[in-house]
Design a protein around this nucleic acid. Structure first.
Lengths: 242, 242
DNA sequence: GCAAAAGTGTTGGAAATACACCCATGT
DNA sequence: ACATGGGTGTATTTCCAACACTTTTGC
């Protein structure tokens, strides 16, 4: 590392010592992991392992390692808790109130993750981890209630503008499943015909010429999302409205 | 790494010691401060004070104090550099790549700030601080180019959905000024009649029965934004589109 | 009187909404 | 045969985009 001082600029060494003096803050990542099952939006929670919040549920998180990228840490937490490797994961917000953690200064970066609950089921072994209906989540440990609500609202908005939702579904899905997913996330009913029309008009669903199986009624067609086509057409976004 | 997923809780003391071991990371805040002048969107930059990036410009930031809320730190940086106290400020994203800072591990939380450049002018004293046209910003120090671009794109989207823009204007403004502002932020021309129609239809501009002064042509009416009315009508957001 | 910007309405097309019937399948 | 959900089209309304002329002011 170069180290030549001048009158106006600071050497790396002097910056280093400034930084050392400030290293009394720890960093963590917390993941809000959503799943979709039985037509409900679920979130994965664990019983808090800290005395102070005994009995309360908390998000899945861990302290950041000193030599670890933030995103890597979030993926590590996810892998550890779900066994899943490449899942949808996006940073949402950083929570940095001084007194948010009872054991000292810990700033946490919140991530939102979406997983296909089918995949997860195969891996789950730990009975302190449970899926909770998002409607019933309350009084989480630490400031996790606030983090959860921030991420949930973020998801509700994000899912309308970006094709995230498919991460919650099997690769092949019916329009009915897709509609139920959106209804669950947004917490509202959607008109079936208009919903289908909209997605058909988008032209991003690939009809794979397969049908649902094991349903007690007329089976629906199955589709895949066309990520390739989506990535090619960079969509610009215009429309002032508030 | 132990996969300790049992119901055993930890004492605060044991958590404290875990945290201490991880305190080798420093945190900073960086502010992307936008202003609007001469019908251009500007960003406030300072010459980097680190050898490694001598000659390059950088964002305004500082290390977080151990007993300081994140938002407070961002406000502190803003106050120090602009003299302004209560300005628009919002967290955008946290950048945590391991090697982003040459002097050690520093994770930075990026904030977007919008100020009325008129107010700023009265306070400026430091000639290492300058406004730069957003179109010409390039090759900033550290990963600040990336941070800047993230915040700029965030602003372009955000300003269409929330009434941020008014923070860049005087309290009283004409529709022409408002339109120029949007055109500058979005980087596109806007139809004058449709723009006015849209804002008039919103019903959030208060006609204060004053006119522009000192213009070389027919003066326009002046308006204020009705924050009260806006805050009362919580707008819900619906419309899948990507 | 001239230059420069303010102010103002209409029309056509696109997209969103609301809404009802027949069809395919399993039981 | 019946129950369940799949699949489809049309009419109405709302929103957006395109577009030109008259008015007011400073010089």
């Amino acid at each position: 590392m170069p180290n030549n001082l001048t009158a106006v600029t600071k050497s790396i060494k002097s910056v280093e010592s400034e930084i050392k003096k400030k290293k009394s803050i720890a960093l963590s990542v917390d993941c809000v992991i959503f799943g979709f099952d039985e037509n409900k939006l679920k979130v994965l929670l664990i019983r808090s392992d800290v005395d102070e919040f005994k009995g309360k549920m908390s998000l899945l998180g861990d302290l950041l390692h000193p030599d670890e990228d933030l995103d890597v840490a979030a993926n590590r937490v996810l892998k550890k808790r779900t066994g899943l490797n490449s899942v949808y994961l996006e940073q949402v917000h950083t929570f940095g109130a001084v007194k948010r953690h009872p054991a000292g200064r810990v700033i946490t970066v919140a991530y939102c993750s979406l997983i296909n609950i089918q995949h997860y089921k195969l891996e789950v072994t730990d009975n302190e981890l449970h899926w909770h209906d998002v409607e019933t989540v309350k009084e989480l440990a630490f400031d996790h209630q606030q983090i959860f609500e921030t991420c949930y609202q973020w998801l509700q908005k994000r899912v309308q503008e970006h094709p995230l939702g498919f991460s919650l579904l099997p690769k092949k899905f019916s329009l009915r499943e897709l509609q139920n997913l959106y209804a669950a996330i947004l917490g509202m009913e959607l008109d079936r015909r208009n919903f289908r029309k909209k997605f058909q008009a988008m032209g991003l669903l690939i009809d794979i010429n397969e049908m649902e199986k094991d349903v007690n009624n007329r089976p629906g067609k199955l589709y895949k999302f066309d990520y390739n086509k989506y990535n090619k057409n960079s969509k610009k976004w215009v429309g002032i409205d508030f």
